[in-house]
């Protein structure tokens, strides 16, 4: 069942808009809150936000698609973001990424067929002296190795 058909979907959206509309430049805070509530930015949210902020749908769509963080579809049950930036590369990040792709059977920025894990690239988590680093859902993980990423993946796909 898609979100707009859940009984409280539009109500929750309205609450979010109401709670943030008084801010200076409220669009990003609203989008963050919408994604937090629904897991992604549902299609029905765009025209409603546009109307509330006196923007065109195109403007809101433009912002949603500009930023890497905002999704147009629900992610997997877990989101594993692997750092691909230079400091992690220099500490063996490429091998960690290769192992993760192999174990999950997906390329970067895609979700496993069973919907268990979304694997994403991230460019720096600020853990550059303890890499290779990753963010698993909201938890930072560092000192990764191909072996440690395998253990981590085994825990979340189990």
């Amino acid at each position: 069942m898609s979100v707009e058909h859940t009984p409280d979907g539009p109500d929750r959206l309205e609450d979010i808009i109401k709670a943030n509309i008084g801010l200076d430049g409220p669009l990003l805070p609203i989008l963050h809150a919408v994604q937090h509530a629904f897991g992604f930015i549902p299609e029905f949210a765009v025209p409603a936000i546009a109307t509330a902020l006196n923007l065109s749908r195109a403007e809101v769509h433009g912002v949603v698609t500009f930023y890497q963080d905002f999704r147009d579809a629900p992610p997997g049950r877990h989101v594993l973001k692997l750092c691909r930036a230079e400091a992690c590369q220099s500490r063996g990040g490429v091998a960690v990424e290769a192992r993760a792709r192999e174990l999950l059977g997906v390329e970067m920025d895609s979700t496993t067929a069973d919907g268990a894990v979304t694997l994403e690239a991230v460019y720096c988590l600020g853990l550059c002296a303890s890499g290779p680093a990753a963010m698993l859902d909201d938890a930072p993980v560092a000192r990764l190795s191909p072996q440690r990423i395998a253990t981590l993946i085994a825990e979340i796909v189990a």
């Binding site: 801010l23 430049g25 990003l28 912002v63 500009f66 930023y67 963080d69 991230v122």
Partner: peptide, 27 residues
């Protein structure tokens, strides 16, 4: 007030950051 970015490196450039704070694409 704290505002949270949304995964765009270019928003570290000061004018793109200001655009983003205003609720626009970080251009």
């Amino acid at each position: 007030e704290v505002r949270v970015g949304a995964g765009a490196y270019v928003c570290g450039e000061e004018t793109a950051l200001l655009e983003s704070l205003e609720g626009k694409r970080g251009q």
